[in-house]
Design a protein around this nucleic acid. Structure first.
Length: 683
DNA sequence: AGCACGCCGACT
DNA sequence: GTCGGCGTGCTC
């Protein structure tokens, strides 16, 4: 029995068997300084080894005795006085880890950026100054002028009826919100999607109520639009941003700013849903169906799911805003978790699907660029910029043998060959090797033909057809955020479309069939999202030509009824027991290990197992994973917690009984049981 | 991970 | 007797 305080800490170590709290004594010297959320150093396993940890709880020593009966070690030292892991964020990390059979520390690493010591010292000094100012005798300690005394009148939202907004959104509200499909100009003159104005107004409304807002966007393009809209409404010091291009210091400074007591607006990519913010009042995601919201690091949580869990923890409002409703959001609407919120009234884009025009000219329908599209591009160029959306970046990303039509393959690694520029020798997409003097492995031919046309080749083709027109290519490698109102042909890969001042004079959506040819459950919803987002960039009334695609998907776009389409798609998925009607976990391991793990799941209600089959290779160019098998576990949402708990137990068992590699063996064996929940590309 | 503990075969 | 091989288990 000891006296004093015991600290429960989370060890900064990814081993699954260490993913629980460890107790340490607090030495006298630290007793006054230690706080929940601080980073500390603790001795771990005899011999003076010291590792990092976070203080999660401080409890009276007398109460702590029941959990651990051995002799407690003392905390070694305090890394800094900044309490960087707030209780709310730790609780969120714990739940996300449990839901995905992962470690809390892996989530904490996403939530708390790497430390930058100078930035931290500066922030701590500023905090100390602010505190000193607060307690200075010149100020009346009772009055707090920053907090409004009366219930504030919350500002409305442009484009939405006040009564509907108030009913759906006020504290604890959860909504699937349809964005207004047009562009607006901010006070500073920048053109942004109306969605960005809506997000900014939601944030301003939240701040007016004295609470913080987290605003998530898929990529930096959207972030620029949102920041432009925010800066027109709010002072810069109330806005924090997180993005992938920041330096360690910038990111850590932005993070520390969120820890302060003042409510603020935090804008960022998928990891912003973990940002600490005092008195969280709103979490909003723009275009929640975008695959960039899926985290690529274990436990692979999607930002939408994190937002849902955090909403429950913090009692904030939750908004999923988009033009095309994600199937996941549709499910949440149908189970009553989200309310629908649509704009008051709006004019939808003027969409013309060429496959639905009943053109007698069959040749025109088969062409990649139908005659109507040529005409509208020509007319549009007389008025302003014309957007051409294509599926693939590069010049000719896939080439084939001209004589036997077999796809051209790399002589070294069998990867697919493509052409980067007109007349260039083809090169391998996987290993980069240049295939000079290429010979077809099937027929011995030497000539190549283009199979897939990229943005570069499209630009060349259109540039020839419209001599003198300015041609701009926007893709992942040439990011262009905006173009002027001057006539130009803007060729963009899906998702990379620049915003045109005042909107495009015409929008051509090419390659729809190619987009739909990809083998994935998600192709249709992705295409509808890409088309919808591009269509909104058109000027009011300007034609949006959808080339070569008809059917339900084209009419969903044409009638701007994406939610109805999502409802039908969700009904189909439910009938087939496909996600998101159910959840999935892919489990990969050596056969014996896999069988053991699956045996624990078979008896559960609402669970079925597909496979096992030989595990697919880990990535392009990777050798076939030797001997590993993969199974897909499908389960009802209600069974999720138990499935995750049992898979987690299997992971811990495998990790702690792992055999060492034979002596002298330099190679390290891959993790022997890999689990991934809700992989978006699994079907 | 990384280290101690411990249970078996071969050695001074 | 006891040295050290590595399989097993634990880390507050």
């Amino acid at each position: 029995m000891r006296s004093g305080v015991v600290a429960r800490v989370l060890i900064d170590n990814p081993l699954p068997q260490l993913d629980h709290l460890f107790d340490y004594g607090v030495p006298e010297a630290l007793a006054g300084a230690i706080r929940v959320g601080q980073r500390v150093k603790v001795p771990f396993r005899s011999g003076g080894r010291i590792i990092d940890a976070y203080v999660i709880e401080l409890v009276d020593a007398a109460e702590a005795d029941d959990s651990f009966s051995g002799t407690l070690s003392d905390i070694d030292s305090l890394v800094s006085t900044a309490a960087v892991l707030t209780p709310e964020v730790y609780e969120l990390a714990r739940r996300i880890a449990d839901r995905g059979a992962g470690s809390a520390i892996d989530v904490v690493r996403l939530a708390v950026p790497p430390r930058a010591v100078r930035a931290e010292k500066k922030w701590l000094a500023a905090q100390a100054d602010a505190e000193a100012a607060e307690s200075a005798p010149s100020r009346d300690p009772v009055a707090s002028p920053a907090v409004p005394s009366a219930e504030p009148a919350l500002p409305g939202l442009s484009g939405y009826t006040d009564a509907v907004v108030a009913g759906a959104l006020d504290p604890d509200g959860r909504v699937a919100m349809t964005a207004v499909p047009r562009l607006v100009q901010t006070a500073s003159g920048a053109w942004v999607g109306h969605w960005a104005l809506t997000m900014a107004e939601l944030a301003a409304r939240t701040l007016a109520g004295g609470r913080s807002a987290l605003l998530a966007v898929p990529d930096f393009r959207d972030q620029e639009q949102l920041l432009a809209a925010l800066h027109a409404l709010l002072p810069a010091e109330q806005i924090s941003r997180f993005d992938a291009r920041q330096t360690t210091t910038e990111r850590y400074s932005a993070f520390l700013a969120c820890l302060g007591p003042e409510p603020r607006v935090v804008v960022g990519n998928r990891s912003v849903v973990y940002a600490p913010a005092s008195a969280l009042g709103l979490i909003a995601l723009w275009d929640d169906g975008d695959p960039l919201y899926a985290e690529s690091l274990a436990p692979y949580a999607n930002a939408r799911d994190v937002a849902l869990i955090r909403q429950g923890l913090s009692g904030s409002a939750l908004v999923l805003l988009g033009h095309a409703r994600s199937i996941e959001a549709q499910r949440l609407v149908e189970i009553g978790w989200l309310h629908e919120l649509a704009p008051e009234r709006f004019s939808r884009p003027n969409i013309i699907a060429t496959a639905q025009q009943g053109q007698p000219d069959e040749h025109a329908q088969a062409a990649r660029i139908p005659s109507l599209a040529w005409r509208e591009a020509k007319d549009g160029l007389g008025r302003g910029p014309v957007l051409v959306q294509v599926a693939s970046p590069g010049y000719a990303p896939v080439v084939a043998c001209a004589s036997c039509r077999e796809a051209a393959r790399c002589a070294h690694c069998q990867g697919p060959l493509g052409q980067n520029a007109p007349g260039a020798a083809p090169s391998c997409r996987w290993c980069g090797a240049i295939a000079a003097n290429w010979t077809c492995g099937t027929c011995g031919g030497h000539a190549l033909r283009t199979v897939r046309i990229g943005a570069g080749r499209t630009a060349e083709e259109l540039g020839r057809a419209f001599p003198g027109a300015l041609v701009v290519v926007a893709d992942g490698e040439n990011p262009i955020l905006s173009v002027s109102a001057k006539p130009a042909l803007v060729i963009a890969t899906r998702g990379a479309e620049p915003v045109a001042a005042g909107g495009y004079a015409a929008v051509l959506l090419l390659d729809g069939e190619r987009m739909l040819g990809r083998e994935s459950l998600r192709v249709a919803e992705d295409a509808l999202r890409w088309w919808s987002n591009a269509a909104v960039l058109a000027a009011p009334g300007a034609p949006v030509i959808l080339a070569g695609v008809g059917g339900a998907l084209a009419s969903a776009l044409g009638t701007w009824q994406q939610a109805q389409w999502a409802a039908r798609e969700f009904a189909d998925r439910r009938a087939l027991r496909f996600p998101p009607a159910v959840r999935t976990a892919s489990v990969t391991a050596a056969p014996a290990v896999l069988d053991g793990a699956l045996a624990e799941l078979r008896e559960l209600d609402g669970v079925d197992i597909l496979g096992p089959v030989p595990a697919p290779p880990a990535g392009p160019g990777a050798a076939a994973s030797d001997g590993l098998m993969r199974a897909i576990v499908r389960f009802d949402y209600a069974a999720g917690a138990e499935v995750a708990r049992r898979l987690r137990a299997a992971i811990v068992a495998v990790a702690s009984s792992r055999r060492r590699p034979p002596k002298g063996g330099a190679f390290r064996p891959a993790p022997t049981l890999r689990v991934r929940f809700d992989d978006p590309e699994i079907f």
